[in-house]
C-alpha cells in the first residue's frame, strides 16, 4: 500500500506528541521529517531521533524536502497563517492544528492558499472520531430520539501545567499567540461536535467567558448558549475548569435531548478509574487521532474530500469569536457566517 510521507512542523502544541506516534505507526502514513520551529525545539529534535525522521531547525527547509508530501502543523496559533500558506505554496497537503487562525480574515487566506495550490486542508476536531459520538450521531440521524431539541455539552481540560512531558506550554497563556485561554483551547472541539451533531448553524450566541479561577492573564472558563437556526438550543461549557486532583484530564460529555428520547454520552473517551492517593481515569480507547490521521491520509491518497475542511474550521472559529464578542459586550451576538 502506498504510504503518505508526513512532516511535522513544530512541537509548540502538545498534540504533536500523539500525532507523531500515530503517524509513525500508521498503516497509511510515514513520519519522515520534523521541524523545530517555535517552542519545544529540543523536544522536536529528540522525537525526530526517536522516529528516525529527518530534523530541520526551520520549517522552510522541511517544506523544501521533496520527500515530504503532507504536513501536520502544530506551531503556535498566531503563526498558523504564515506556515500554512507557505506549506500550500510548496504543494504540501495540510493538517492544521485548531483553531484555524487568529481571525476570520487569516482563515480565509489559509483556505484560499490551499485552494489555489490544489492541496488538501483539514482541521483536527477530535470528538467526532470517537465511538460514542459516532454512535450518537447515527442514532440522531436515524430519528431514534425524535427531532433534536437541546444539547448540554462539556468540553474541558485540566488546569494547564506550564510544563507537561517536557513541553513548554506558556504560549497558551498569551492571547496574542493563542487567540485566547481555556475557552479558545477547548471550545472548538465542543463547537465542532455541536455543528456536526445538529447539522446546522447557530444564528445567535450568548457567552460568559473569563479569567475566573486561576488568575491567569487569559480566560480559564466559559459557557456559551447557542441558538441554532433549526431551533436546537445548546449550552457548552469549555475551558480548564478541572482542578489538578480531578480524575479526568480531558472531559467531553454530551446530554442530547430529543423530543422522544435522550442520549447520555457520558464520555467521548471511554476510561476506567484507578484509585490510589487520588482517583485517575485511564483512557482505554483514544481512536480520535488515529481517525483523523487515517481519514486525512485516505483523502490525500485517493483525492477525496477531507471530513473537516477549511470552511468548517473557519465556521468553528466564527462561532468561537462570536462567543468572545458576546462575553466582552455582555450581549447576545448574531453569528456572521
Amino acid at each position: 500500500m502506498k504510504k503518505l510521507n508526513f512532516g511535522i512542523i513544530s512541537y509548540a502544541h502538545p498534540h504533536a506528541l500523539r500525532f507523531a506516534s500515530v503517524i509513525a505507526g500508521g498503516r497509511r502514513t510515514k513520519l519522515v521529517a520534523i521541524s523545530g520551529d517555535g517552542l519545544n525545539s529540543d523536544v522536536a529534535r529528540t522525537e525526530a531521533k526517536k522516529y528516525g525522521a529527518r530534523f530541520y531547525r526551520e520549517y522552510e527547509a522541511l517544506l523544501r524536502d521533496e520527500n515530504v508530501e503532507a504536513v501536520y502543523i502544530a506551531i503556535e496559533t498566531y503563526r498558523h497563517k504564515e506556515v500554512a500558506i507557505r506549506a500550500a505554496e510548496e504543494g504540501k497537503h495540510i493538517l492544521l492544528e485548531k483553531p484555524i487562525a487568529l481571525n476570520l480574515k487569516d482563515a480565509d487566506d489559509v483556505i484560499a492558499a490551499a485552494k489555489k495550490a490544489g492541496v488538501k486542508l483539514m482541521l483536527p476536531f477530535n470528538p467526532r472520531f470517537t465511538e460514542p459520538l459516532i454512535k450518537a450521531k447515527e442514532m440522531i440521524d436515524g430519528g431514534e430520539i425524535g427531532p433534536l431539541e437541546y444539547i448540554q455539552a462539556i468540553s474541558e481540560n485540566v488546569k494547564p501545567p506550564i510544563f507537561i512531558q517536557g513541553l513548554d506550554m506558556s504560549w497558551f497563556l498569551d492571547a496574542k499567540k493563542s487567540g485566547g485561554g481555556g475557552f479558545m483551547d477547548t471550545a472548538p472541539h465542543g463547537v465542532d461536535s455541536l455543528l456536526w451533531l445538529t447539522g446546522g448553524l447557530p444564528r445567535k450566541v450568548y457567552a460568559d467567558i473569563g479569567a475566573k479561577i486561576y488568575g491567569f492573564p487569559v480566560d480559564d472558563i466559559g459557557t456559551a448558549v447557542l441558538e441554532f437556526r433549526k431551533g436546537v438550543l445548546a449550552v457548552l461549557t469549555a475551558g480548564w475548569g478541572n482542578p489538578k486532583g480531578y480524575s479526568y484530564s480531558i472531559e467531553m460529555k454530551y446530554y442530547l435531548v430529543g423530543r422522544e428520547g435522550f442520549l447520555d454520552v457520558r464520555t467521548a473517551y471511554p476510561d476506567f478509574t484507578v484509585y490510589q492517593d487520588r482517583a485517575e481515569k485511564i483512557y482505554w480507547d483514544r481512536p480520535d487521532v488515529r481517525g483523523i490521521v487515517e481519514s486525512f491520509s485516505k483523502a490525500v491518497l485517493h483525492d477525496e474530500p477531507v471530513p473537516i475542511d477549511g470552511e468548517t474550521g473557519k465556521l468553528n472559529l466564527a462561532v468561537i469569536l462570536a462567543a468572545y464578542e458576546s462575553s466582552r459586550n455582555k450581549k447576545p451576538v448574531k453569528v456572521k457566517l
Binding site: I145, G146, E149, Q152, T223, V257, G258, R259, F262
Partner: peptide, 10 residues
C-alpha cells in the same frame, strides 16, 4: 447557569 425542564424524555 440554571436549566429547568418539564420535557426531559428521561
Amino acid at each position: 447557569i440554571a436549566e429547568v425542564s418539564w420535557a426531559y424524555p428521561y
